[in-house]
Nucleic acid binder design. Structure first.
Length: 426
RNA sequence: CGGGGUAUAGCGCAGUCUGGUAGCGCACUCGCUUUGGGAGCGAGUGGUCGUAAGUUCGAAUCUUACUACCCCGACCA
């Protein structure tokens, strides 16, 4: 990818609409642009990151045995009436009518659609358990969208729904999803906590949230300083109690004391039980040939929110510092004097081609700008490795490898092994 | 929905109090010189000052209404 050809409008100043660091940096790095409150266009750089995360999620979901489908965003009222949620959900359910004045909504979630699919197409316990997922745009007309894509109204989510014969089977799938989510967050490279949560209006039994720890998180969680225990503070507070009063108390699990942290909820897993299956009469025949209500679980990951969460956790005064697994590019070749100097341009072009053939994702900064401008942009965008081809190359045949995190070294241009080592060690 | 705030060029801002026909920095275009930390000089492009109505000879500026956006709260698989 040539820098001069990609739509990458970087900004020196953050627009005043942005408050939190991830929002500012996403705007400044040219990743997203706002279309309306809580509704964004993803530009090429942002989309690359979004797709990276999406693909990690997809790979791990597939590895867990889940199957990918794609359900509609527009859903008919009739399905939502079956679970009573057409009435129960407030204005956050965006409703619309088609030309025949038939009622629809934009899907904020897909229990109704998936349960309808399964009840019509799965008839026997022999087909269970089954776990179906999609990565799709959701719409929730949030009371107050904020912080850019962190809490958008339109957002990209991986949602999956498991159908199980009984509670034990559901528990098994639930644990499998729990492990899958751990793997996903570890692959992305985030510091997170699994938090016991209120299962809320959905009902059902077990429910856990996956929180990326960050100061700007909207949720307050209590974690033990000496065990894995973590719980949403909503579940600990008695009437009238202040959150700060929890700090330093003995942890409810008996290990250590409570610390209060802010978290960004990026995942939520539920054991729903039979709630929706009963409402929608989703049965299969069991071994005895009798109709048996399905046990259901649902599992969500906020894909677009993860982009913002990753930035909240990985930035410095110069810009974004992407974890290697989700950086929009692996390498930025900063060619100083590319337009003017054929020695530079030929060296940059051939290195670019070689690195791509080695499997790296590379951007070549071929713009007619100086070192400062190019480095500032690269640091803002958080590209893990910069390769500088400039004066040193003309004089000593040397290129400089400069990591986003600071280290740098001078190398022979033929020394691609060092580049390999750079990525291997991360 | 309650409270607070903002709205002038793509971005950041001044001008508003005290009405006189819109400006600065960056970005962008052209030319020349530059090129290892956001370059220099010269010449340019770009704005019905959020919208509507009102006051006035005259409104970015005063009045009223509305809208959009942001923050706090309530809300939130």
């Amino acid at each position: 990818m040539l820098f001069s050809k990609i739509l990458l409008p970087t900004l020196k100043d953050a627009p005043q609409e942005a408050e939190v660091i991830s929002h500012k940096l996403m705007l400044r790095a040219g990743m997203v642009r706002k279309v309306a409150s809580g509704i964004y266009t993803w530009l090429p750089l942002g989309l690359r990151v979004l797709r990276k995360i999406e693909n990690i999620v997809r790979e791990e979901m597939d590895a867990s045995g889940a199957q990918e489908v794609l359900m509609p965003m527009v859903q008919p009222k009739e399905l939502w009436q079956e679970t009573n949620r057409w009435e129960k959900m407030g204005p956050e359910l965006l409703r619309l009518q088609d030309r025949h004045e038939r009622d629809f909504c934009l899907g904020p979630t897909h229990e109704e659609v998936i349960t309808d699919l399964i009840r019509n197409n799965v008839k026997s316990y022999k087909e269970l358990p089954i776990n179906i997922y999609q990565i799709q745009t959701k719409f929730r007309d949030e009371v107050r969208p904020r912080y850019g894509v962190m809490r958008g109204r339109e957002f990209l989510m991986k949602d999956s729904y498991s159908f199980n014969a009984d509670e034990a089977c559901l528990e098994e799938t639930y644990q499998k999803m729990r492990n899958t989510y751990k793997t996903v967050l570890e692959r992305i490279g985030l510091d997170y906590k699994i938090v016991s949560a209120d299962s809320g209006s959905i009902g059902g039994d077990a429910s856990e949230e996956f929180h990326v720890l960050a100061e700007t998180g909207e949720d307050t969680i209590a974690i033990s300083d000496s065990s894995e225990f973590a719980i949403n503070t909503e579940l600990l507070l008695k009437d009238g109690e202040d959150i700060s009063s929890l700090e330093g108390k003995p942890s409810p699990d008996g290990n250590g004391t409570i610390q209060i942290k802010k978290g960004i909820e990026v995942g939520h897993i539920f054991q729903l039980g039979k709630v929706y299956a009963e409402d929608m009469k989703a049965n299969v025949l069991n071994k005895e040939g009798k109709a048996s209500t399905l046990h259901m679980g649902c599992y969500g990951i906020g894909v677009s929110r993860l982009v913002a969460a990753a930035i909240e956790q990985n930035n410095d005064d110069k810009g974004i510092v992407w974890p290697h697994g989700i950086a929009p590019f692996d390498i930025n070749i900063i060619a100083i004097g590319y337009e003017k100097d054929q020695i530079i341009s030929e060296a940059a072009d051939s290195l670019y081609a070689e690195l791509i053939s080695m499997g790296y994702e590379v951007i070549l900064d071929d713009r007619k700008d100086g070192y400062g401008t190019k480095m500032k942009d690269s640091e803002l965008m958080g590209i893990p490795l910069n390769i500088i081809i400039g004066k040193q190359f003309i004089e000593n045949n040397e290129i400089e490898l400069k990591a986003r995190t600071g280290e740098s070294s001078s190398n022979d241009i033929g020394d691609t092994k060092t580049i390999l080592d750079f990525f291997k060690n991360k």
